[in-house]
Computed example of a mutant assay.
Amino acid sequence: MNRLIRYVFKHKNTGRIETKRCYLSQIETNPTEALAPLVNNADYDLISRDLCFDEEKGVFVGDLINVTTWFGNYIASVKFGEYEQDGSGDEYAPSKCFGFYAEALIKTITDKDGFEIVPDYLVQNSMRELESYKRIGTIYDNNEQREES
């Protein structure tokens, strides 16, 4: 499987964020050509390497997404690793899972009628289980949303 990876660089003086996307096969066959303009530049720091979850929508680990459920909409961060999944509504103990998941930034959102938009059992949810989502940015260019979590 040829994985798409996003490399995120930060310019030391200006703080400007630069990204490069490369397939793993590109890096394995010619690593210097794919990333050389930023890796070999002393003015930039590599701040992140992110796996792609959804190439069609351009969603990577570290991205912020707007999740639409029948409860309502909420903002989540895409992550990769171990998480607890509970689709039972607290009827059963959560299962330990590993993979791509969305974690709600604000866990206590309610709608206009006072009902929870993100019930406890959906705070961490498998990306594959999401009904609908849209990429809205990254944690690097949406600091105000990241700080709210």
Rank of each mutant, 00 (worst) to 15 (best):
P31Q: 09
G58H: 02
C52E: 00
E55V: 07
R49K: 13
L46H: 03
L51I: 11
E56N: 13
T29P: 03
V39C: 14
F60Y: 03
L51K: 11
R49F: 05
V61S: 06
S48K: 06
L51E: 03
S48T: 04
F60K: 03
C52A: 10
L38N: 07
L46C: 05
I47N: 05
F60P: 01
P31F: 06
I47F: 00
N30Q: 04
L38M: 12
L51A: 13
L51D: 04
P31I: 05
P37Q: 14
V61F: 03
N30G: 08
D54R: 07
K57N: 14
D54F: 03
N30S: 07
K57F: 07
I47P: 02
D45G: 11
D43P: 06
A34C: 14
K57G: 15
V61Q: 03
K57R: 15
L38E: 02
V39Q: 10
C52F: 00
P31T: 04
V61D: 01
Y44L: 06
V59R: 00
S48L: 05
E56F: 10
A34V: 09
L35Y: 06
D43S: 11
P37T: 12
E33L: 14
C52H: 01
G58S: 04
L38V: 09
L46P: 01
T29M: 08
R49Q: 11
Y44G: 04
A34F: 05
D50F: 00
N30D: 03
T32D: 15
K57C: 14
P31V: 05
C52T: 02
L35R: 12
E55L: 09
E33G: 14
E33P: 13
L51C: 10
A42S: 14
T29S: 10
L51Y: 04
R49A: 09
L35Q: 10
D50H: 03
E33A: 15
V59S: 02
F60R: 02
K57V: 09
K57I: 08
E55I: 06
K57E: 08
S48I: 02
I47W: 00
P37R: 12
E55T: 06
D43L: 11
S48F: 01
D45A: 09
F60Q: 02
S48Q: 05
L46I: 01
D54N: 11
N40H: 12
F60M: 06
D54M: 08
Y44E: 01
T32R: 13
C52K: 01
K57H: 11
C52S: 06
T32P: 15
V59N: 01
N40K: 15
L35I: 11
D50E: 04
L51P: 05
L35T: 10
V59L: 05
Y44P: 02
V59I: 04
N30P: 03
A42R: 15
L35V: 10
E56K: 12
D43C: 14
A36W: 13
A34I: 07
L35S: 11
L46D: 00
L38A: 13
V59Y: 00
G58F: 01
T29G: 11
